[in-house]
Computed example of a mutant assay.
Amino acid sequence: MAIVDIPNEYGYVLLAAVSTFFVGTWHGMRVGGFRKAAKIPYPYEYASYEQVQTASPTNANLMLAFNAAQRAHQNFNENHPTALAAMLITGLKYPTTAAVLGAVWSVNRVVYAIGYTNSGSEGGKGRYYGALWMLAHHVMVLMSVKSAWDFISA
């Protein structure tokens, strides 16, 4: 049986993990602002293709920005559980690396969202400015496998 020693640096991992909660809250508030500007009522999740096509250019851009903000938020929600778990597992063996990767993940989720919404009329191509989150995400997942293997092998 492996005994888990929590490294002193694990607090940084927890701080990086907590940062993801603030990023998620920021996403939700941001979507709300874009929803209000685009005049998309609840419970509709997106402005439909037909709504965008028949709207004035100004309103169409507002709707596309809302759709992009909503999609960025959903993409965050889809990836958050895996990133958080991988960060916490990785941090048990590699706390500094996990904390740095977690911070990179959080910062780039914000860059991704801003880029996406600022380029909604261009198909959201601006999201690629924050694509570094994907690299951080996959490295954390792979390192969590390595951490788990290290515990099994101990």
Rank of each mutant, 00 (worst) to 15 (best):
G115N: 08
A131L: 12
A98M: 02
P81D: 06
V107N: 12
G124I: 05
T117M: 14
G102I: 06
M87I: 08
N118I: 03
V100Q: 01
P81F: 11
Y112D: 11
A113I: 07
G126P: 13
V110L: 14
K125R: 10
L142M: 02
Y129V: 02
T90P: 08
A103M: 08
H137Y: 03
V104E: 01
G124L: 11
L135I: 05
A85E: 06
G123K: 07
K93T: 02
P81E: 08
A86L: 09
H138T: 01
L132E: 01
A99Q: 05
S121K: 13
T117A: 11
P81M: 03
V100C: 12
T117F: 05
A113H: 15
L92K: 05
A83R: 10
G115L: 14
T96R: 15
L101Q: 11
Y129R: 12
N118K: 14
Y94F: 15
V107L: 13
N108P: 05
I114V: 14
A113T: 15
A83M: 04
G120P: 02
R127Q: 12
G126L: 14
I114T: 12
P81L: 08
P95G: 13
Y112S: 15
G123R: 09
L142I: 02
G130S: 09
G123L: 08
E122Q: 13
V139S: 03
G126W: 14
V104I: 11
L142D: 00
T90W: 09
L88R: 06
A83H: 09
L142C: 00
L84P: 09
G124K: 11
N118S: 11
M87N: 05
L88M: 13
